[in-house]
Every structure is written in structure tokens, then in C-alpha cells.
């Protein structure tokens, strides 16, 4: 079957989709967006987390056909998504991240002091600055989940952060640096940096 939906602000069409296929598979294998990771395919690890109509979900548990006509944001579109949010939405309609841009997206880093030339979302920059990435496999899911929490709750307590990230497993970091990163992103956000 064919599935039409919006990915990172741009309309996409996936063809030859098997009816039992997951959104995660469509993103990775049909649209060439491997940012969302596949580690368990059973909702346990959160490394496949994306936003579906704004809501964080495990893309491995969403059937491809269920996203017809709906909006998905993946880690590849997170920087642009966060930028638009900071600028108060997309006025021109020409926002979003094209498939080619998303496929070739790389973390370039930026000057976290000035925020100039930001190619990363604040959460992404904070993960780098706090050293919250080791093997990196869990990182895309954590970024999407953490970014959504900061959107809802700009001044989270440690308990709020733990709860928001409780569906994301990391086998490397022991979580402390991840906590540091989210606290850092929250602090920068509230300083307007």
C-alpha cells in the first residue's frame, strides 16, 4: 500500500508498504531516515521515539497505515522544529526539512555561548556540551523525548526529567550526564540563550 504523510514538515509518500509494517521501518528503510533507531521493536527502549501529531511515541509500535495524513517529526528534523518553535511557527509555509537535507543531516555543532549559527536544537547542543553521548544509539530517542518535555515544561525538576525520560534506555552513560544535559538545556532555554 501507499502511505502519504508529513515528515519533518514536508509531505512524503512511501510506496510498497507492507500492511503490517511499522512507522519505524518506513522511516528507516523506505524514506532513508535512519536517525530513529531500532533496538527492540517492542516499545521497551525508546530509541525509536518520534513525534506523531506532536505526541512522543515509539515509532516501532505505530502501524505504517495509521500515519496516513498525519505529521511526524524525527530527530533529523528536530533542529528545524525547535528553531521554528522559538521563532513562533512557520509563517511562510516553506519551513521543514526536506528528505535530502534530512538524509544528509549531520551534527555540526555551534558556538553554544553565542548561539550563533545554530544548526542544532538547544537540546542537541546541550547533549554534546554535557558529554551525554557515548555510543549514541539511545541519543535520537532521548533528544526527541527531552525536547518535547522542555516544550511542555520549561523548568523541570529532576523528578520531571526522570519521568519524561523513563521510556528511554541507555546502556552506556548511567544517565547522570543525560540528566546534566537536560538541566543545561532547560537553564539555557530559560536564560533565552
Amino acid at each position: 500500500m501507499r502511505v502519504n504523510f508529513t515528515v519533518n514538515g514536508r509531505p512524503q509518500e512511501a510506496d510498497d508498504v507492507w500492511e503490517g509494517e511499522s512507522l519505524l521501518y518506513v522511516l528507516r528503510e523506505r524514506l532513508g531516515l535512519p536517525g530513529s533507531k531500532n533496538a527492540c521493536e517492542q516499545g521497551e527502549c525508546g530509541s525509536c521515539t518520534v513525534r506523531l501529531d506532536g505526541v512522543p511515541v515509539c515509532s516501532c509500535l505505530v502501524a505504517a497505515g495509521q500515519v496516513e495524513g498525519r505529521e511526524v517529526v524525527t530527530v533529523e528534523g528536530l533542529a528545524e522544529y525547535a528553531k521554528q518553535r522559538a521563532e513562533g511557527g512557520c509563517a511562510t509555509g516553506a519551513c521543514g526539512t526536506s528528505l535530502d537535507e534530512a538524509k544528509s543531516w549531520q551534527a555540526k555543532g555551534s558556538d553554544s555561548q553565542t548561539g550563533e549559527g545554530t544548526e542544532l536544537s538547544p537540546v542537541q547542543q546541550a547533549f554534546i556540551d554535557a558529554g551525554a553521548v557515548q555510543c549514541g544509539f539511545c541519543t535520537p530517542g532521548l533528544l526527541v523525548a527531552a525536547d518535547e518535555m522542555l516544550e511542555r515544561n520549561p523548568n523541570p525538576t529532576d523528578a520531571d526529567i526522570r519521568e519524561a525520560l523513563s521510556g528511554n534506555l541507555c546502556r552506556c552513560t548511567g544517565y547522570e550526564k543525560i540528566m546534566d544535559a537536560v538541566r543545561l538545556a532547560a537553564a539555557r532555554q530559560s536564560e533565552g540563550v
Binding site: C58, A145, G167
Partner: peptide, 9 residues
């Protein structure tokens, strides 16, 4: 139940 992602669905 589970985690935020699962509770959202």
C-alpha cells in the same frame, strides 16, 4: 503503565 511513549498511545 510502561512509559510516557506507551501511555501516549
Amino acid at each position: 503503565v510502561a512509559s510516557p511513549q506507551i501511555r501516549n498511545r
